[in-house]
């Protein structure tokens, strides 16, 4: 456990001198958009869009997903711009385009702002004003609330900041219906509750990295034992929440069975992390939970999609 003072957390280390000539390739700009995070965002937004009641023209749906993807990319780029100083310290992120010197901070900021502006404007003009407003809020929340405000100040950073990652299915839903509803909120809730055990499993593996960068992740300020306890608690809330689309949203029996089984396995893996003796055993358990948590979320949303495609499996006409 490392003690981090509030003052230290708020300080940003100096970056490389500005004014360097850009040697950035197209691939570096793509990396700036965090494509792996973007893929999960696009998938959950796609599910929200597909299971929403009503019809949307395929081209309009494609446009909505494109805007959501670019908006997520803009948030990723602005996050990397602001966090370049701590990214340079952490092993996991040191090879990112800005700390490695391939893209200057100014270029990243300009790129992120341009993408954000375009994605929101195009979504508003071609699809839906509400979806565009939600996308703008998502970018704002991820960049300003999570990255700038919370990340270096509180171990609750990813709990609250997780709201940004949970919004894409609501954006997809709003793109079709022009509104938000209980069903779309339940999808938001699942991702929101999924984020803490997912990220804390990763942060258990990278606690030294976070401590060196003075990022107050839970294992750094409260220790691995408390983190493992919190992982179990959040997973115990997440598993029943995974069933809510069946209870309140009209998802089918297939979804209910899948969510129950997948939730039980998630709890078992979280419990294994809690009971792990430490050292390599703990790392293996945390790695297992981290990997499985991605599969868990993907599976739940994929089943919703399958039920939408095969209406006979669904309990109701929609969702």
């Amino acid at each position: 456990m490392t003690d981090i003072s509030a003052v230290d957390r708020r300080q940003k280390a100096p970056l490389a001198p500005p004014g360097l000539i850009s040697e950035a390739g197209v691939g570096d700009y793509l990396a700036l958009m965090k494509p792996r995070v973007m893929s999960l965002v696009v998938f959950t937004a796609f599910v929200g869009l597909m299971i929403a009641p009503g019809h949307i023209h395929p081209v309009i749906a494609f446009t909505a997903l494109l805007c959501i993807a670019i908006g997520a990319g803009s948030a990723g780029a602005l996050n990397m711009w602001y966090d370049a100083d701590i990214d340079a310290i952490m092993t996991r992120t040191a090879s990112r385009p800005i700390p490695s010197g391939r893209i200057t901070p100014g270029e990243a900021a300009g790129f992120g702002l341009t993408l954000g502006g375009f994605s929101v404007a195009v979504l508003a003009l071609l699809v839906s004003w509400l979806a565009a407003a939600l996308l703008a809020f998502t970018i704002f929340f991820y960049v300003v609330v999570y990255t700038v405000w919370l990340k270096r100040r509180t171990p609750q950073n990813i709990v609250i900041g997780g709201a940004a990652g949970a919004l894409p299915p609501m954006i997809g839903w709003a793109a079709v219906t022009g509104s938000v509803s209980l069903e779309s909120f339940l999808l938001f809730l699942i991702i929101f509750l999924w984020t803490p055990p997912h990220f804390w499993a990763l942060s258990l593996l990278r606690a030294d990295d976070y401590a060196r960068a003075r990022v107050p992740m839970l294992p750094v300020v409260a220790g691995p034992q408390e983190t493992r306890r919190q992982i179990v608690l959040y997973t115990l809330v997440l598993a029943p929440a995974g069933l809510t689309p069946r209870l309140f949203g009209g998802a089918g029996v297939l979804y209910a069975v899948t969510a129950a089984a997948a939730g039980a396995l998630m709890i078992a893996l979280a419990w294994r992390v809690k009971r792990a003796p430490g050292g390599e055993g703990e790392a293996r358990a945390a790695r297992g939970l981290f990997s499985y948590s991605i599969l868990y979320l993907f599976t739940l949303f994929a089943v919703l999609l399958v039920e939408r495609g095969l209406p006979g499996l669904s309990g109701h006409a929609v969702m």
Binding site: I21, S22, E23, A24, G25, V26, Y29
Partner: peptide, 11 residues
């Protein structure tokens, strides 16, 4: 640098 600038412009 010229090659990369050209690639960026094309993108």
């Amino acid at each position: 640098q010229l090659r990369r600038r050209r690639a960026r412009s094309i993108a």
